[in-house]
């Protein structure tokens, strides 16, 4: 029983981290109706931005996270402008495929600059806190709180600010929004910036918890996609629910299936879930 509780705790912690880039993926999808698969490379860009800020410039983790948000966001906007926007008129799948090529380009820019070596951020290693036999890591708690804070900040932005409401209007109905005088292109840029910025934050959180190498984004991205799809493409609350469910499924599955299969389990679960909810759990599109 203790083990189940431990896995539940681990699953929620891991799920919250997964939810951050999943939200990023979905916010881009909501406004542009495009799956931008280069989010994997932007997770890596964020992780290395955080590494540069934290290790090379000596900044504390919170500033490294902020730096990663800004740099991944900016890199996302720039790469979208150069590579993907010219293709938007030719169908969502064409853009999605191009974003796979873009992912290759971005990941290799990172590799060109930093090499393949595995690096760690400069944070103290702390032992877990143990409550009634349940292990909880201080770093994991910090990361969890940052993930929650990032999500709350994003929700507030979308719910309570003019620009956030404008963005949601574009997501709901671009034509109508245009009539109301909202520039859809500006909103698209903002969505990409926020979405890829979230990916950058996730990159640093993963780096803090684990280590950095150019494939860091590729290592998690399938779980991120799974979370985004399960919750419903384009749905931000859906991404949170999806992230948590995937995090929990991957952990709890280890009770019954050998650990080596856990990455497959997540996806097998999705395929089953989508048989029941073809638009994801909270998807409406």
């Amino acid at each position: 029983m203790l083990q189940v509780f431990q896995l539940l705790v681990n699953g929620v912690m891991a799920g919250a981290i997964l939810a951050v880039p999943a939200i990023g993926f979905n916010i881009v999808f909501a406004v542009l109706q495009i799956s931008n698969f280069s989010i994997a490379a932007l997770i890596a860009v964020g992780a290395y931005a955080g590494y540069t800020a934290n290790v090379l410039l000596g900044l504390p983790p919170l500033l490294a996270i902020l730096a990663a948000f800004l740099i991944s966001g900016a890199a996302g906007v720039a790469s979208d402008r150069l590579a993907l926007r010219p293709l938007r008129g030719y169908g969502a799948i064409a853009v999605a495929i191009a974003s796979l090529a873009l992912n290759m380009v971005l990941e290799n820019i990172v590799r060109f600059i930093f090499g393949n070596d595995v690096r760690s951020l400069d944070v103290p290693m702390m032992r877990d806190w143990i409550f009634e036999g349940i292990h909880v890591g201080p770093q994991a708690v910090f990361n969890f709180l940052v993930a929650i804070a990032a999500m709350v900040a994003l929700f507030s932005l979308l719910s309570f600010t003019t620009v956030g409401r404008a963005m949601r209007a574009v997501a709901d109905n671009p034509t109508l929004a245009n009539i109301k005088g909202i520039d859809p292109e500006k909103m698209a840029r903002l969505a990409v910036f926020l979405g890829m910025g979230m990916a950058g934050i996730a990159g640093v959180l993963l780096a803090l918890d684990t280590a950095v190498d150019p494939t860091i984004g590729m290592r998690v991205v399938l779980s991120v996609f799974a979370a985004a799809v399960l919750g419903g493409l384009g749905s931000i609350p859906g991404a949170v629910v999806g992230g948590l469910l995937i995090g929990l499924a991957e952990q709890l599955s280890t009770l019954v299936v050998p650990v080596a299969y856990s990455s497959a389990i997540g996806f097998a679960a999705i395929i089953l879930a989508l048989l029941l909810f073809p638009r994801g759990i909270l998807g409406d599109r």
């Binding site: 083990q3 431990q6 896995l7 681990n10 891991a14 993963l206 918890d209 684990t210 494939t215 860091i216 590729m218 290592r219 998690v220 991957e250 952990q251 280890t254 050998p258 650990v259 080596a260 299969y261 856990s262 990455s263």
Partner: peptide, 20 residues
């Protein structure tokens, strides 16, 4: 022994099983 998929980032379950 357990065999794990080295391409992941999260090995909490693996380590948990080992230390148990």
């Amino acid at each position: 022994t357990i065999v794990y998929d080295g391409r992941r980032t999260d090995f909490r379950a693996e380590v948990g099983q080992a230390l148990q």
